[in-house]
Design a protein around this nucleic acid. Sequence first.
DNA 1: GGCGCATACTGCAATCTGCAGTATAGGGTC
DNA 2: GACCCTATACTGCAGATTGCAGTATGCGCC
Lengths: 216, 216
Amino acid sequence: MPEREPSITGYLTLGLLAGRDWSAYQLAEQLGRGVSELWPSADRGRYAVLNRLHKAGFVETRQEHTGTRARTIYSITPEGREALAAWLRTPVRPPTVEFEGMVRVLLSDQGSLDDLRATLARTREQAVANREMFARYAAFISETGGTFPERKHLFALANTFMIGHYEHIISWADWAGQQIADWPDTVAPAETHGGQVRDMLAPGREVLAGDDTSEW
Amino acid sequence: MPEREPSITGYLTLGLLAGRDWSAYQLAEQLGRGVSELWPSADRGRYAVLNRLHKAGFVETRQEHTGTRARTIYSITPEGREALAAWLRTPVRPPTVEFEGMVRVLLSDQGSLDDLRATLARTREQAVANREMFARYAAFISETGGTFPERKHLFALANTFMIGHYEHIISWADWAGQQIADWPDTVAPAETHGGQVRDMLAPGREVLAGDDTSEW
DNA sequence: GGCGCATACTGCAATCTGCAGTATAGGGTC
DNA sequence: GACCCTATACTGCAGATTGCAGTATGCGCC
């Protein structure tokens, strides 16, 4: 009898358990690998989720041992499978982004041009590293079938998104670097380069008219 | 005397206060508009942040009244300005994504093909709506200067990113829709369309070789 | 005079994060 | 054979955050 709706981390856990049994440690480890780029969660929270799934009756536990050290093995129950399938039938919530670097861009008039440049450079570097991680993963899946061969086709869909996502960040960082290249500082360009700002805001894309101008 | 490092929401608040004074309600409102697409925060938390900023000495308060109803006006202190500038000199953390829809894609073998199609369709719709919101905002800034004319050049940088971001989601959703178009169900394609999955994973992009194959 | 929406917040339970801490297993090394 | 390092296998706790509900006044309109 479910007490409360599991979190997304909970459904991810159920999704892993749908294929085979895992120990708590293994589950926590799996959710900290590449999936965390799609659904971030702290190590600590993944164990807490398991306890709640257990209370709700969605998973069962048994103990195994390596010498004197115990570990808990989790398996999914029929109720857990049904809860997962039921969730998949509900409407999705839109993706959200937490982009500290972009917050720094917005507030960069309170700092130096070097701060802004450093933010763009680091953002680019991190995106390159992540893109390459997913590119390597794509090669790995393609060659070996990956850790979840039966989900290869689904991982392919997600992997393609992630690579494109990081490529978009890289492109944007490059473009933004060019935009700020001739700024004298982080404050003045609004006046001295007004025309340029207008160009930035009126690209070749279709810009819709409308009253519902949501402000920042 | 700072007790603890402010959160990003705290720095956003300081960033707004750097320009002029705001009431708590106005601050909470501003942080719930478009910025929340860049740095999400719950309404409730924005008030809590203000109390912590006050305790840390980064903001000062005064009371104003409309009839009998009070409201608290916040202004930034020199310490607050310094804390904001100091933060801008520290290294950025990489952006993170919370993509419930992509989690559903990964686990879609536990549900129906219709579930998966619905997820893709809704994700696409939401992205289109958001892209248009930012496109309208671009037009609004271009014409009127926006709510923060002195930060027009910075909003332009961020706005361009957001439009590209939603466009990437739309492109991906379209592509993914085509990929699954001839799937008989969410489970089988791995075997029946093995060649296709290989194509998905080996696009025209440079795929690096390496041992550090980070797994999901 | 009453309705509905905007203003202006606070309380609370549950959850989540970040950091630290505990302890055993297993392999290499001098 | 003693030591060290890394992996395994978690738990405790304070503070932060979310989501939901609740309270109450101001103001325009019909």
